[in-house]
């Protein structure tokens, strides 16, 4: 297990390194000049050069990338302004440290991600189990049809229709948004319900389908038959034996989804105007705020690779046939 973790974490660091390098060179090498934006209308070549120097983008590219990297591990100096250890630089737009903004935005993203993940896992796996056990019956057909519609609907469409109906017309829910759960738990919950529901409707179908089809498969396996022959009740068989074998694809998808959500659910956060990492990324792209884009890309990529390691480790726990190397 330890060997597996070390190997995978090293691999993850390598992947993050590649991703950061690709992002850095693509953005900073290309002719989109962020200085021109902050320079404004009365821009003179001298002024532009000053801004270039202040932003640190007048130096050769590899040197810039090197100081970006060393900045993450050792901190760096921005013209007298010291940026301490995990330094991701300063925003080109509001000149705040990128790391502070990311940390500031992360609770909203975390709230959306954890709540939605829990809800969609419960709903999806629950639907799949019921459908598998009532295979061919009306319940099965109705839930699978619902899954088809859910999987085909778009977040930005469903989310806004739901908001129109539940918030504006019926007024059952408050406006979606993030408030700190420690200051006002009720408001936090109310503001998060709509994003959670939306992400569940759109994503639960995958879980329901995987659960259903692998349950149907495992219920036909020899070891399930043996468990039955030993005299175990049907529920005992479902829960103790069949369920466990059916969980592998669900765990895979769940890990990927959670990784994606933690990196910022871009469309959901934009649709409901929740100020998390995803909305930050969309706004930074609109403002050509390169250090901020780098920051959000790194957060999202880290979440993805960590999730994939966690998924592989989970396989070993769920399925004793899997051995980690």
């Amino acid at each position: 297990m330890l060997r597996f973790l070390v190997r995978r974490v090293l691999g993850a660091v390598l992947i993050l390194f590649v991703i950061s390098a690709v992002t850095f060179f693509l953005f900073f090498a290309l002719p989109s000049d962020p200085a021109r934006l902050s320079c404004g209308k009365g821009c003179t070549p001298e002024l532009l050069a000053t801004i270039h120097h202040n932003l640190g983008i007048d130096r050769p590219l590899p040197e810039q990338y090197w100081s970006f990297l060393t900045g993450i591990f050792a901190g760096r100096d921005f013209d007298g302004q010291w940026c301490s250890a995990p330094c991701l630089g300063f925003s080109f737009v509001n000149h705040q440290p990128v790391l502070d903004t990311l940390l500031n935005r992360f609770p909203a993203t975390l709230s959306v991600a954890l709540g939605a993940a829990a809800l969609m896992l419960t709903v999806g796996v629950g639907l799949g189990l019921i459908a598998a056990l009532r295979r061919g019956k009306t319940v099965d057909k109705v839930s699978m049809a619902a899954c088809l519609v859910g999987a085909s609907v778009q977040i930005y469409f469903f989310g806004i229709i739901a908001r129109y109906l539940l918030v504006d017309e019926l007024q059952w829910l408050p406006q979606p948004g993030y408030t700190s759960p420690f200051a006002a738990p009720g408001a936090w919950f109310g503001g998060m319900v709509l994003p959670w529901i939306t992400l569940t409707v759109v994503n639960a179908a995958t879980y329901a389908r995987y659960t259903r089809s692998s349950m149907v498969d495992t219920l036909g396996e020899d070891y399930v038959r043996t468990a039955r022959a030993k005299g175990l009740s049907s529920w005992g068989v479902y829960i103790r034996h069949a369920w466990r074998g059916a969980m592998t694809p669900v765990v895979t998808t769940f890990g990927i989804d959670l990784g994606l959500f933690l990196g910022g659910a871009l469309i959901t956060e934009t649709t409901f105007n929740i100020h998390g990492i995803g909305k930050l990324a969309v706004d930074s792209v609109a403002n050509s705020d390169l250090p901020m884009i780098m920051g959000t890309v790194l957060v999202a990529a880290t979440a993805m690779v960590l999730a994939s390691i966690a998924v592989d480790a989970c396989y070993a726990v769920i399925d004793p046939r899997v051995r980690l190397r």
């Binding site: 992947i15 953005f27 995803g278």
Partner: peptide, 23 residues
Amino acid sequence: IDVVLSFPSTLFFIAFIPVIQSL
């Protein structure tokens, strides 16, 4: 393939499309 699949794709789409256009 591993690296490409671990890129956060939606974020990359929105980040790169304006950059490539400016090329």
